[in-house]
Design a protein around this nucleic acid. Sequence first.
DNA 1: TAGATTGTTAATCGATTAACAATC
DNA 2: TAGATTGTTAATCGATTAACAATC
Lengths: 230, 230
Amino acid sequence: MTEDRQMSIALPTIRRLPMYIAVLEKALQDGQTHASSSQIAGALGLESIQVRKDLAAVGVVGQPGVGFPVGELIAAIEKSLGWDNASDAFVIGAGHLGTALAGYRGFGRYGLNIVALFDSDPAKVGQAVHGKKILPMEKFADLAARLHVRIAILTVSAEAAIESAALAAEAGIKALWNFTPTKLAPIDGVIVERVDLAASLAVLSSRLASLVGASGAARPQAADEPESEV
Amino acid sequence: MTEDRQMSIALPTIRRLPMYIAVLEKALQDGQTHASSSQIAGALGLESIQVRKDLAAVGVVGQPGVGFPVGELIAAIEKSLGWDNASDAFVIGAGHLGTALAGYRGFGRYGLNIVALFDSDPAKVGQAVHGKKILPMEKFADLAARLHVRIAILTVSAEAAIESAALAAEAGIKALWNFTPTKLAPIDGVIVERVDLAASLAVLSSRLASLVGASGAARPQAADEPESEV
DNA sequence: TAGATTGTTAATCGATTAACAATC
DNA sequence: TAGATTGTTAATCGATTAACAATC
C-alpha cells in the first residue's frame, strides 16, 4: 500500500526546495553527512517544523537524534524538481533579457541548459551570445523537434508574446518560462510559468508606500521632475 | 469609526493588483466607465468573488447592478501600490540583466523611474545604456542622498550581492529589489523583495517532470527521429 | 418593478505551526 | 541510559470560495 507515492508536492514547498539545495550543498562542503531540520531552518530564517514537513514531502526520512542525510537529500530534491538530468532549452527573443539569461552560468545548477537563441530580427540572426547562436524563428520548430527541446524561455516584447507562445506550442514545446509582461491564456498541453515582475514590484512598492505613509512624511519634492511616458 | 483604514492588504491580493490595472486600462480605452467583477474575472481567469474581495481591499465600492467605476479603481489601485507618483531608482550592477532592466520602458507604468546604473568595473563606468549613465560605486551613497533615491535594483553577481546590499543600506536605500540568486539576511529598515528565478524554475521543471513521469513514458529514443507532426 | 451585481457573513480549503510520543 | 531530533497527529491561521440579502 505504502509506496513511493508521487503525490504532487505543494507549490509553496516546491518554491522552497532550491533554497534547501543551496544550504545542503554548503553543509556538504563543510564535510557534514547529516543536517538537522533546525540547522537548515536557522540558515534560511524558517521554522524547523516547516523544514521537516517540506523534506517529508520529497520522501526522505531523517534519523531521530541525528538529522537528515545531506547527500541523499540533495539527490531527492533534485529528483523531485527534475533537476537530476539537465534539460535543453531555447530562448525566444535575443534582446537584453534573453541575452542576459543565455549568459547566466547558474542555470546549469538547476538542470537547465540553454542551447540557442531565436529572434525574428535578421540583424541579430547569425550573431552569437556567450557562445550560443542566434537563429531565425523559422528554424525553431524544426530544431525543437530534432533536438527534443521541451523548454522555451520567452523574452520577447509584450506584443510578440502571444504569437511566440503559439509558435512554441505548435513546435511541441512542453514548458514555457514566460518573462514577458503578458499573461498568456492557458495553452493545451503546455505548462506556463511566469516571472511576474509587476507582481514582485507591487509587493516592494506597496510596502515602501505604507512605510512612508506610516512615518507620515509627505514626498520631498524636487524642482523639475520629468514626466515619464509609458 | 469607519475610516480610510490603511489596513495592510493581503500579499496575494497585492500581487494580483497589477493585472487588474492592465485589464481596467483596456476597459477604459474601450470607453467603459464601469466594469463588473465578473467581467474582470473573466479576462483574467479568476472567480468574480475573488475580484470583489480584492477590490474591496483597495477601498473602492462598486454599484450593485452596475459594477465598479473604472477610472476611480485604477487610481485607487495605483495609490495602494504607491504607483501614483513615480519613484526614482538606481541599478547596482551594469551587467546584462541590469542593462536589460534599465532599458525596459514598461517600468514607467509601474511608477518606477530608473535614473542611473552603478558598477564597480572601471571599464563600464562612463558608458551609457539607454541614455542612462553607468557611474562608479564610489558615487552611490552621495548621489542616493542628494537625489533622495530610496529604491535600488540589485543585479550584481551572487558573490557581490551581500556587499552591495550593505552598501545600499548604508546609503539610506529603503527598498531593495533583489535579482541576484543570493538570499539576503534581513537588513534593519530595508525592505527586500526578491525575484527568485530558482523558485520559479523549480515550479516549471517539477511540473514538467511530473508530466513526463505521469505519461509513464521513458524518454523517446527513437532509432531514426520521428517526424514530429508540426 | 425586474434584472444585475454588489458587499457581507459563513463555509471550505490548504498551509503553517504546535505538541509530543517514537526512536536513534 | 540520556539527549537530540524525527514524524505524526491535532490546532491554528489565512486565503479562497459559497450563499444570499441588500441595493442600484
